[in-house]
């Protein structure tokens, strides 16, 4: 048995260095590694490249690291909920690569799966295609897109065990499984950490081989961006 458990977020992220390339799981604020982000904020590491579907909101998620100017570059698909992000981008203070969401997901998946590049129809004929190889398959044009890799992947799961096996809940899965596989060092935070053997192997979403460090997260805020409810009829 390989014990991957670390005490807390601060210990887990301690060796993340300046100019590191990070992947951060989550869609909007759903399934983001809240504890690791807070620890990075406290540690103050700068020059980070963050690969994440979104950039958080002004005062939560990656938005916190943008505010403290710890982020040098963002690779994302949608950043519409963060005014500070938009300001830094339009002012030329932040490097940004915006990618089609499916291309982002597949580039990360490819990174973890050892596939250096693949063709996709998404973005053909748009500015995303600039400088990229194109090729026709079945009469339709496609773009060559390369894998994405990270020094560290910061993922969040619902349950995990001491071997690093992970189970996600609801739509909090999103980018977390592919990022877990694409990080040289993957740091998983979980709401419930259990001893190996307690999770049903049939239900594991991320096998422990992809996870190097795991810790029991605490004080999850799980902020909701758009709280929409049915009016009682």
């Amino acid at each position: 048995m390989i014990d991957k458990v670390v005490d807390n977020a601060a210990t887990a992220i301690k060796d993340i260095h300046e100019n590191a390339v990070l992947m951060l799981g989550g869609f909007g604020l759903c399934g983001i590694p809240e504890n690791s982000i807070q620890a990075l904020l406290k540690q103050g590491t700068k020059g980070l490249t963050c690969i994440s579907n979104n950039a958080g909101v002004d005062d939560f998620g990656i938005g916190l690291l943008l505010k403290t100017r710890q982020v040098k570059k963002m690779i994302s698909s949608y950043v519409g909920e963060n005014a500070e992000f938009e300001r830094q981008l339009l002012a030329g203070e932040l490097e940004v690569d915006l990618l089609p969401q499916g291309t982002l997901a597949e580039r990360i998946r490819a990174g973890g799966a050892g596939i250096p590049a693949f063709y996709t129809p998404a973005g053909y004929g748009t500015e995303v295609a600039e400088g990229k190889e194109t090729r026709e398959f079945n009469g339709k044009m496609h773009l060559l897109e390369s894998w994405l890799l990270a020094d560290y992947s910061l993922v969040k799961a619902w349950k995990g065990d001491t071997e690093g096996n992970l189970i996600y809940k609801g739509t909090a899965r999103n980018f977390n499984p592919m990022m877990a596989a694409a990080g040289k060092i993957t740091i998983a935070e979980v709401e419930e950490l259990v001893p190996a053997g307690e999770l049903d192997p049939n239900t594991i979403h991320t096998p422990g081989i992809y996870v190097q460090r795991i810790f029991q997260g605490k004080a999850y805020e799980k902020r909701i961006e758009q709280r929409t409810v049915s009016s009682p009829s």
Binding site: V79, G102, V128
Partner: peptide, 12 residues
């Protein structure tokens, strides 16, 4: 600058 999200994949 909000980004394309999934729109480019969907329409392609």
């Amino acid at each position: 600058v909000k980004g394309m999200g999934g729109a480019m994949d969907l329409v392609a």
